[in-house]
Every structure is written in C-alpha cells, then in structure tokens.
Simulated assay, not measured.
Amino acid sequence: MALTREEREQFLAEPHVAALAVEAGRQDRAPLTVPIWYQYEPGGEVWIMTGRHSRKGLAIAEAGRFGLMVDRVTPTVRYVSVEGPVVSTRPATREQLVEISSRYLPAEKVDAYVDFAWKEHGEQVVIRLRPEHWLSSDLGRV
C-alpha cells in the first residue's frame, strides 16, 4: 500500500541511512549506488554532504540529479524513494557537519567525529535535491 504524502515525508525525515543512486556516465555500468547520510524536513529539500571531488560528488555534478531510497524491515516493511534535480551545491560548513553527524551518531561521539571529518575528509559540499518523484510503500508484516 502506498504511503500518504504526510507518511512518506515523515518517514524520510527519520534518520535512516539512504542508498544514493546517480547515473555514473557509463553505458556499460549500472548507476552508482552507495550508502549516505542525509537531512530532510517535511516539505523541504533533501541535502547530503560529500566530497566535492568524490566519485559521487562528480557523478551528481555531471548528472544534475540523483535519487535516495530509505527502508526498514520492522515493525513492517516500508520504503520511500525520492528523486529529483540538484538545486544547489555549496561549500559545507562545520555547522552542517555537526547537524548531520548529530542525526546519526550518539551525542558523546559527535564532537570527536566532527573534528576528525572536518580535518581529514577534504573539501566537502552540501548538495540539495528538490523532491520531484516519489515511490513509497508499506508492505505490512511479512
């Protein structure tokens, strides 16, 4: 059963690790699909943070769009997939790194992770996606 708009937006707003998919520019290969942290508030844009010169960063810049899929298997099998155009790419701020890290890590781990990532991960960008196409379902208990 498809989710309502409110249900799918609320589910996407939860801190799932997403599968990011983006066309990688090669006819002989499937799209690049990798796990990624993301941020989303219902009714807004989705944003991710990645290295400007990472494989996914370059592929997104070339394609101009990407998709994310999040799922869970308990208490029911549920997923939401969203795809759309990139609406902005900007240099990441330390505050954004704190925000997204706080979404996924225990509070006592955030500062150490942010210090490490800010120093070691190289130039990071925040890429914003405008949700354009949605797929969602709750398959019930299996």
Rank of each mutant, 00 (worst) to 15 (best):
S54W: 01
I100N: 01
A112L: 03
L20M: 04
A2F: 09
A92M: 09
G140L: 04
L97H: 00
S136P: 02
Y79K: 05
V110A: 02
G64W: 04
L68F: 08
I60S: 01
T50H: 02
S136N: 06
Q39F: 10
G25W: 12
R26L: 12
M49C: 09
L97R: 01
T93V: 05
P131H: 10
A13E: 05
L97F: 03
A92L: 10
P131K: 12
V80P: 11
V125G: 11
A92R: 03
A92W: 07
S81Q: 12
T33V: 15
W134H: 07
A18P: 01
L32D: 06
V142L: 10
A13V: 06
P85G: 13
S102K: 03
R90V: 15
V73W: 13
H121M: 15
M69R: 10
E23Q: 13
D71R: 04
R141P: 09
G57K: 09
E7N: 06
I127Q: 05
S137F: 08
A30Y: 13
Q27A: 15
I36M: 04
E41N: 12
D111W: 05
R8Y: 10
V17R: 00
F116A: 13
L97V: 06
E108W: 06
A107V: 05
S136C: 07
D111K: 05
Y38E: 00
E83L: 09
E23D: 15
A21P: 03
Y38Q: 04
Y38M: 05
A117P: 00
V98Q: 01
S137M: 12
W47R: 08
E62C: 12
V80N: 02
R103H: 08
A63I: 09
R5L: 10
L139R: 12
P15C: 06
T76R: 14
R5T: 15
V77G: 12
S54Y: 04
V46R: 04
Q96I: 07
A30D: 11
P42C: 14
P35Q: 01
D115N: 01
Q124R: 15
E95A: 15
D138R: 06
P35S: 00
L12V: 04
E23C: 10
